[in-house]
């Protein structure tokens, strides 16, 4: 297993190189010249000479591979450059916003776990009952609901109609519940359906039928045999979901005025703040890869057979 982790960590380097190259190429093929954007943001009638001077100052006159290596060289040292809008080092701004996003995602994940596991188990236990059908419909609606819409409805109802929470949360712990619930609902709905389907698949397996024949009660059967055997694919999916959640908070954060990384990235995009955008893309690439790796390690830890399968496969 240690060997596998080392191997994955090694391959992580290539993934990250891919992420940096990809994000760098994307920002360079964009029809917007960053130096022109920078100058024009300050002065709409800037002359070509001013833009050219800025291009030189920012190093955009260098060949693209040189620009890339300079950027990567600095990024490795944690230097993502200074924000075009504030002049503050990007890494400092990200370090300030990141804990807020972690807080939001953390609470949302707790809600997801609290919802997904018991509901999925109940659905399997009472398959095709009213409860199961009801949950199937609710989860279908949950998956189809847009965060943006749901956020405003929830905010309007609780903040304006009932007046029990504040519209302006500003990252305070007492205000995290509403954005976290809004964030968690579509993801929980999706995961309930996946876990339920996986568990139902396992219910018909030989060892479960044998266990039933042994007279093991249903609730023990579902928890100890069906649920735990259904976990690996869900954990893999969950790993990806965590990455997606950390990188995908922009809409929720915007609706709830949450000062996290999503809001920061959204603003960076609107402002064409390239150092911030590049840093965000790279950091999110790292987050995704690490979450996937952790999910795989978890799977191996739970079920060493997975590792064997992986080794045989390779």
């Amino acid at each position: 297993m240690i060997f596998y982790i080392k191997k994955r960590l090694f391959s992580l380097i290539f993934v990250l190189i891919g992420v940096t190259v990809f994000s760098f190429i994307l920002s360079n093929i964009a029809p917007i010249d960053p130096s022109e954007a920078y100058v024009r943001r300050k002065n709409v009638s800037a002359s070509e000479e001013q833009i050219e001077a800025m291009r030189k100052e920012m190093g955009f006159d260098l060949p693209i591979h040189k620009q890339y290596f300079i950027w990567v060289g600095n990024a490795v040292k944690g230097d993502f450059g200074e924000s075009y809008t504030t002049g503050v080092p990007v890494i400092k701004e990200i370090a300030h916003a990141f804990p807020y996003t972690l807080k939001l995602v953390g609470v949302a994940l707790l809600i997801i776990i609290i919802l997904v596991i018991p509901i999925s188990m109940l659905c399997v236990r009472y398959k095709n009952s009213f409860f199961d059908n009801f949950i199937r419909i609710i989860t279908l609606i949950g998956i189809s609901t847009s965060n943006f819409w749901l956020g405003f409805i929830v905010l309007y109802f609780f903040a304006v109609v009932l007046n029990v929470v504040n519209v302006l949360s500003y990252g305070k712990m007492e205000n995290v519940l509403l954005p976290a619930i809004t964030f968690a609902i579509p993801i929980a709905a999706f995961n309930i359906r996946v876990l339920r389907a996986n568990m139902l698949e396992n219910v018909n397996k030989d060892h479960i039928i044998y266990a039933k024949a042994r007279g093991i009660p249903n609730r023990i059967l579902i928890y100890k045999h069906v649920f735990k055997n259904s976990l690996p694919p869900v954990i893999t999916l969950f790993g990806q979901t965590v990455g997606y959640m950390i990188a995908g908070t922009a809409i929720i954060e915007n609706v709830f005025s949450w000062p996290g990384l999503g809001n920061y990235a959204l603003k960076a995009i609107i402002d064409r703040n390239l150092p911030a955008i590049n840093a965000f893309v790279l950091i999110m690439g790292v987050v995704f890869v690490i979450c996937n790796l952790l999910a795989d390690i978890l799977n191996m830890y739970i079920n060493p057979l997975t590792l064997k399968k992986m080794e045989n496969y390779k």
Binding site: P99, Y100, L102, K103, L104, G106, L110, G171
Partner: peptide, 9 residues
């Protein structure tokens, strides 16, 4: 994590 975020805010 959530507690840490709380403290940071």
């Amino acid at each position: 994590v959530t507690g840490f975020g709380c403290e940071s805010s």
